[in-house]
Nucleic acid binder design. Structure first.
Length: 346
DNA sequence: AGATATGATTTTGT
DNA sequence: ACAAAATCATATCT
């Protein structure tokens, strides 16, 4: 009969139920029922298994945490953010002087993400605590009418925490995604490409066309070009890589440019209007473009000595017309600065 | 607006 | 490991 009443409680109004509960607690048979329940429980031995006490420490969660920390989202307050932004700036390799404005924008957006993240985290924390205390109260209350071991309460709390931490993980995940998107938007160097200064381009072109037979500047030459042009050594390398491939792909297109820059170095001699034939050198390999027809290759004999530019080449170092002679490169195994790239965080 | 130029990154080949 | 080649993504021109 009493059991029937207990089951019935669920269908009644709160006040009614409360009253009934009180009545039950005071019922003279209650202690007997309680001890019976204890006995049953003891017999069935449905006690908590002590398994899965140690958490496996999800590696995915660790990665997310690490990233959030590294990006300054999860770390200490304002300082962390600044440090992260500075680190990101350094990592992106931008020695560009105009980057501060973009970065302030980036930092602002990051701070927003950070704020939302922390607000949500706190909300979850609070909800978790609330829920936990609620459940604990409930269990404590119930322990008056049925046997509840402290272990069981602990276990419930553990379950609740696990549940909430999985929700937290979702939050972390989406925060990480947001940060990644932000990064790619603002810090991917390709997205804010700036053309080099006129002066730098001129410098590079001058070197390229005056070393057309072997346009592979040494490390030292690159350093000098970089310094003079106000760009990095890596950018110089990129430029030459691009230039070589694009030049040989379409020599015709570059003839005008070639004339400009070779004339520049050969000003002293003639102002002859007849343009020189395109230089084809061994470094261009057998690749001929659609616009520089096959016969160009037939004309490509050993690098024709460019008398005018020879002087210039010589003054620049042993890289100009040195193809035939042995000294192509000076020994340089010292890697100065690796090309910076955006770190792959995920 | 679309075509071309250009700096940077990724893939490929040796 | 290095350079060529391909590709990406933005800048600049028309």
């Amino acid at each position: 009969e009493i059991l029937q009443q207990i089951v019935g409680i669920a269908e009644q109004s709160l006040d009614e139920a409360q009253a009934k509960k009180h009545a039950l607690n005071c019922h003279r048979m209650k202690p007997a029922l309680f001890s019976v329940l204890c006995e049953i429980k003891e017999k069935t031995g449905l006690s908590v298994r002590s398994s899965q006490e140690e958490e496996p420490v999800d590696p995915q969660l660790m990665r997310l945490d690490n990233m959030l920390l590294a990006e300054g989202v999860a770390g200490p307050e304002k300082g962390g953010g600044l440090v992260a932004a500075a680190a990101a700036a350094a990592a992106s390799g931008g020695v560009s002087p105009d980057s501060s404005i973009e970065h302030s924008d980036y930092r602002h957006k990051l701070a927003q993400i950070r704020q939302i993240y922390h607000a949500e985290l706190e909300k979850y924390e609070q909800a978790c605590n609330e829920f936990t205390t609620h459940v604990m109260n409930l269990l404590r209350e119930q322990s008056r009418t049925r046997p509840v071991a402290p272990r069981e309460i602990e276990r419930m709390v553990g379950i609740i925490h696990r549940k909430f931490s999985s929700i937290q993980m979702q939050l972390k995940q989406s925060t990480c995604e947001a940060v990644m998107i932000l990064r790619s938007r603002f810090l991917d160097a390709r997205r804010k490409r700036r053309n080099f200064s006129k002066q730098a381009t001129e410098l590079l072109n001058e070197y390229f066309y005056s070393h057309l037979s072997n346009p592979y500047p040494s490390e030292e030459a690159k350093e000098q070009l970089a310094k003079q042009g106000g760009i990095t050594v890596c950018q110089v390398s990129n430029w030459f890589g691009n230039k070589r491939i694009r030049y040989k792909k379409n020599i015709g297109k570059f003839q005008e440019e070639a004339n400009i820059y070779t004339v520049k170095t050969a000003m002293s001699v003639t102002h002859g209007t007849q343009s020189e034939p395109p230089v084809t050198a061994p470094w261009m390999g057998t690749c001929t473009s659609s616009l520089s027809p096959p016969w160009v290759r037939l004309l490509s004999l050993p690098a024709p000595p460019q008398v005018e530019s020879l002087r210039h080449s010589m003054s620049q170092g042993p890289y100009g017309e040195g193809l035939a002679s042995g000294q192509l490169y000076s020994p340089r195994d010292v890697r100065v600065s690796p090309c910076p790239s955006t770190p792959q965080l995920l």
